[in-house]
């Protein structure tokens, strides 16, 4: 499948601080690509570099196979974006704001503004000004602005940030629709792993400016191990019993009442009996797959914030 964006060995330094360190990404056409990482990991800097808002110290970016040229209007017009929080002119309505951006972009197509607003479910006739918009409406307007010139690629930085659960679901369905129905390539960033897990086809984990892993969601799902978690009265005695009765048992103590055991799913009844026979109360047993969040914690070796 064609790489619509390719980032090669990108490095960005701010006053001695290495914000991006040898970042390479391959974003395939017609798919949703999720950039995952903690706040400050470098996700926004990658997006800003692609958009020419910040200039990489070293490295190259290719759009549809050609090296990115920040002065090339044609190349730039294939991208629509929303970076950081959606920022618009506070005393203007959604329509008036988009009229300004349509003028800057040279969008002359009649009805382009209505079409973009309609796609994200905003009323084009409303006189409500941007400063009185809810966070959800602001995010929608940000996406509408990104869609205004009908770009092939959408770059959206934390598009569900600050939204209530319903808002998150709505934005998610808009993005899936744009990708599947309109064949848009979408690059989104988020620090909410469970959110990206639901929509992304490919993902990259970013940690301290480095790409820890880049893979398809399918591969990651396959890599996520199955485990059984036990809620018990004493985790330390439970761990000791596992050590004594099994060869090199793979387990993690999650809290002082919860232990997670990998690779012994077929021995759930046996472990349950072992624990209860040794005077440990077992309150709950659950077998499930590792989530993306668990996987991220595992590969970065720490808690997500």
């Amino acid at each position: 499948m064609e790489n619509i964006i390719e980032v090669k060995r990108l490095q960005k330094e701010y006053n001695g601080f290495l914000a991006l360190d040898d970042v390479s990404l391959r974003i395939k056409k017609g798919r949703i690509y999720g950039l995952l990482g903690r706040n400050g990991a470098g996700k926004t800097t990658i997006m800003k570099s692609i958009l020419g808002l910040t200039f990489p110290s070293i490295g190259k970016i290719y759009i549809k196979g050609s090296p990115m040229n920040y002065k090339n209007k044609e190349q730039f017009s294939t991208i629509g974006s929303m970076i950081e929080t959606p920022a618009f002119y506070s005393n203007l309505s959604a329509r008036e704001n988009l009229e300004l951006f349509a003028l800057i972009r040279g969008v002359t197509e009649k009805g382009a503004i209505e079409k973009a607003l309609d796609l994200v479910g905003l009323e084009s006739s409303s006189n409500k000004t941007f400063d009185s918009f809810s966070m959800g409406m602001k995010q929608r307007l940000g996406i509408a602005n990104a869609l205004l010139h009908e770009p092939e690629i959408l770059i959206l930085d934390e598009p569900t940030n600050g939204l209530d659960p319903m808002g998150i679901v709505e934005i998610r369905s808009i993005l899936i629709n744009l990708c599947k129905e309109f064949n848009k390539t979408i690059l989104i960033s988020s620090h909410i792993l469970s959110e990206v897990e639901k929509i992304a086809d490919d993902i990259a984990f970013i940690e301290k400016g480095k790409v820890i892993e880049e893979s398809s969601m399918e591969n990651i799902r396959n890599k996520c191990e199955q485990y059984t978690s036990y809620v018990v009265s004493n985790v330390y005695d439970s761990a000791r019993l596992l050590e004594e009765n099994y060869d090199n048992p793979n387990y993690i103590v999650i809290s002082n009442r919860k232990i997670r055991v990998f690779g012994l799913d077929d021995k759930t009844n046996e472990i349950n009996r072992l624990l209860t026979n040794n005077g440990i109360d077992v309150f709950q047993i659950n077998t499930q797959n590792e989530s993306l969040e668990d996987y991220f914690k595992k590969i970065t070796g720490g808690d997500d914030n």
């Binding site: 958009l51 808002l53 090339n72 974006s81 970076i83 800057i104 602005n145």
Partner: peptide
């Protein structure tokens, strides 16, 4: 941010 990413020059 919106302005610069919409405008080339």
């Amino acid at each position: 941010v919106n302005y610069m990413s919409a405008m080339v020059n």
